[in-house]
Design a protein around this nucleic acid. Structure first.
Lengths: 218, 218
DNA sequence: CTCACAGCGTTATTTTTTTCACAAGAAAAC
DNA sequence: GTTTTCTTGTGAAAAAAATAACGCTGTGAG
């Protein structure tokens, strides 16, 4: 599978979701699935499922649908770096711990291998099976453990600085939980997890359906 | 401002971001800003900034740019429910605490007013200024405190069940941190915060730029 | 055997979102 | 007083994404 030709971010996101759903199905013993079934589970249309699988070059059978384990393998060939991806997490507060806890032993090809924190009390300990280091050791550890992706869970005030250090140390992708847009070179891919934005979005859309009505009929 | 005509989700998200940036600028004493400055801060194009403000009907001056406090007021008139929005959080683990901690006293119009957890040890306490309740009191408390939006931070296995209870109790918008797509009526707006997906996406895009090269030149 | 079906792969179409490009206007420069 | 140089607002164009449509194929019923 050629990882260098471009697949859209939206498609990659859905493939990740599909793989998770398929893996669960596989555990339940299901062997085949139709596009509309998967679409239903993922909350998208069947056409989109077929199209996504088309772009990664997987073909199912019109009669049995898609073969689940083969499909998982094919998606994984696209998503996973064959050598695995080592991930660091910077910021060992509640959020950092929650994420470490969730990811422990979940994906063999995508492992959190180091944590960092400014607070010396949280340093040199093993949390959820992950060794925590002082921020000052960042560059060294990132290089040594060949870390290419990092999760930022520090306060907004230090996020930019931390991000720059990570990039300088060789990190090429970031998941950013701090509520600030990071200014980084274009070749670094950043995914923002902006909780405030999501909450305000949901609040907005949960309000428009009847807010007008209420005020129209006093 | 008419909240009932539809503004796209993308635009709402950016407005939320713009407001946060503008608020920070306002604190620093800045009074005016040009579209390209804000665009730069937010990581979008200037045209997009102007267009987003166009759809909410705010006009700046071609000479001085946008008046920051007026603009904030105008964006807020779109985003905020004038009566405020009460938010619940279900699941008081690390993630739930992190979110409560972050939101405490941040937005007056968007307040977390109740927390819920299945674990009786975490119940009937005040965490980050928010009272935690037993899950069995969910319906009652949601109705009493007029909660319309909820944040789900429970394990994947109970997310669907919790979501259904919330919707039945009257909640109309959800931010879902559990790694499962929720199946709910269309009128409920759901925003998924899928950490696994984001991480896999970033891992993918951080890999494509040079993964090919490495294998092309052994 | 033939026919109706069901679902895939793919092309075409529509819809949504973003970007471009330029008129208009006012300060500043000269 | 004119020209230059910035903006904004917005229609037009382009790009991206989602959806619909349809030919194809193998299966099973009659």
């Amino acid at each position: 599978m050629d990882r260098s030709n471009s697949i859209s971010g939206k498609t990659i996101g859905r493939l990740s979701l599909f793989r998770r759903l398929l893996t669960a199905l596989s555990f339940e013993g299901k062997t085949h699935i139709y596009s509309h079934e998967l679409a239903n589970m993922a909350g998208v249309t069947a056409a989109q499922v077929r199209r996504d699988f088309m772009v990664i070059g997987y073909s199912g059978s019109p009669v049995k649908g898609y073969h689940i384990t083969e499909l998982i393998r094919c998606v994984s060939r696209v998503l996973d770096d064959p050598e695995g991806t080592n991930v660091a997490i910077v910021g060992v507060g509640h959020l950092g711990r929650a994420i470490m806890n969730y990811f422990q032993g979940r994906r063999p090809k995508l492992q959190i291998v180091a944590a960092f924190d400014r607070d010396e009390h949280k340093v040199n300990r093993v949390i959820q099976g992950v060794r925590s280091h002082s921020l000052s050791a960042l560059k060294e550890v990132v290089a040594q453990r060949r870390i290419t992706v990092a999760i930022i869970t520090v306060p907004a005030s230090s996020a930019q600085e931390v991000a720059e250090q990570l990039v300088e140390a060789g990190v090429r992708g970031l998941v950013n939980f701090a509520p600030v847009p990071l200014r980084l070179p274009d070749e670094v891919s950043v995914e923002d997890m902006d909780i405030t934005m999501s909450l305000e979005k949901v609040a907005y859309f949960s309000g428009i359906s009847d807010a007008g009505k209420e005020r129209m009929e006093p």
